[in-house]
């Protein structure tokens, strides 16, 4: 088993390197992908613009060749190239620095994760817990199951933006019920700082919106899997041997439906680090989603590549973890 897991870890690391390399090379070689000092809105001094752009590109290290070689026409550049420099940095645990402000990418990611992890992490935990409880409850009640599935599909069809705006207009609106703050965080908020719980009211609406939107993604497949298990002969046998409904549900049915739950959960885990750009925009929270969206718009490739690398690593880790848990539950899957 250890060998198989090691093999999967090695495969996952290889995949992460491939994804990051492809993103790095594509983001720097596609037309329009290079950052520009002057935009259509910001015009340079007459006769100076081209020189200023060249200086800017040179300062960012974009004047050196992109890769070890060029195919057409063939030319060997050797190690002084952008990809080699980036790969060397990554191997040392550095992801370079932002094109926009020169700050280390790791610092940008750390700052964004400080907000994103409590936000999306609590939403995922709430969503997972609620969906599991609801699925367990509904799987034994056919009428409620049908109603909840319909409700689940309805919620699933609602765009996250609509859910966020509805909550904002209902519970942060001076004309309706201004219970919660409309945006942002307290001025001195820090997860590791003093009294982080003071930020709790600021998290209620965004976490609720994210929980509502993630609920159907977990509830629908898990409830279906549990319902299917309830119709299996081993359930009748357990009940005939005197096991209570509760015991049958948690000790016999749930372990058999758990692989579905873990697999769906593994799909949602990368969202914890990727953030939720829509919710971060609606509630003015500077998390990972906004960081990556703004980096993409500004062609801040180091931040973008760093963020995607992190998300890819978490996704691969989540899959590995889900595989490991499923194997623990059912060794035949190995």
């Amino acid at each position: 088993m250890a060998g198989a897991l090691l093999l999967r870890v090695a495969r996952a690391l290889g995949t992460a390197w491939l994804i990051a390399s492809a993103l790095f090379l594509l983001s720097r070689s596609l037309p329009g992908a290079a950052p520009q000092l002057f935009t259509d809105e910001r015009v340079g001094t007459f006769g100076q613009q081209a020189a200023a752009e060249t200086d800017y590109q040179q300062r960012l290290g974009l004047q050196t060749p992109l890769f070890y070689f060029r195919l057409l026409p063939w030319r060997w550049h050797g190690t002084p190239n952008q990809y080699h420099r980036w790969l060397t940095q990554v191997s040392r645990g550095e992801l370079g620095s932002s094109f926009r402000d020169g700050t280390a990418v790791t610092e940008h990611l750390r700052r964004a994760l400080q907000l994103t992890l409590p936000l999306t992490g609590s939403a995922l935990l709430l969503g997972a817990g609620l969906s599991l409880l609801l699925a367990q409850w509904a799987a034994r009640r056919p009428r409620w199951y049908r109603r909840l599935v319909s409700a689940g599909y309805f919620l699933d069809s609602l765009p996250l933006f609509v859910v966020g705006m509805l909550l904002l207009l209902l519970l942060a609106n001076p004309d309706f019920w201004p219970l919660f703050p409309a945006y942002g965080l307290p001025a001195d908020f820090s997860v590791t700082g003093a009294r982080p719980w003071q930020a709790a009211p600021y998290f209620v609406l965004p976490v609720t919106a994210l929980t509502i939107s993630s609920l159907p993604a977990l509830f629908l497949p898990v409830a279906a899997a549990l319902r299917e298990q309830w119709q299996q002969p081993y359930v009748a046998t357990a009940r005939a041997k005197g096991a209570s409904r509760q015991r049958t549900s948690w000790r016999h049915v749930l372990p058999n439906a758990a692989p579905v739950f873990f697999t769906r959960l593994a799909d949602l885990v990368p969202g914890v680090v990727a953030g939720a750009v829509v919710i971060e925009v609606v509630f003015a929270l500077p998390g990972m989603g906004r960081l990556l969206a703004e980096a993409a718009a500004a062609r801040d490739v180091p931040v973008l590549v760093g963020g995607v690398l992190l998300i890819a690593a978490v996704r691969l880790l989540a899959w590995l973890l889900a595989d490991f848990l499923n194997v623990l539950l059912d060794p035949r899957l190995l």
């Binding site: 942060a172 409309a182 609606v282 003015a284 906004r290």
Partner: peptide, 18 residues
């Protein structure tokens, strides 16, 4: 300076005297 990218949220904040 409060950074609020969404205009609807900014309008709510203004009306809430924030």
């Amino acid at each position: 300076f409060h950074v609020i990218p969404n205009p609807a949220t900014a309008l709510l904040a203004l009306r809430r005297n924030e």
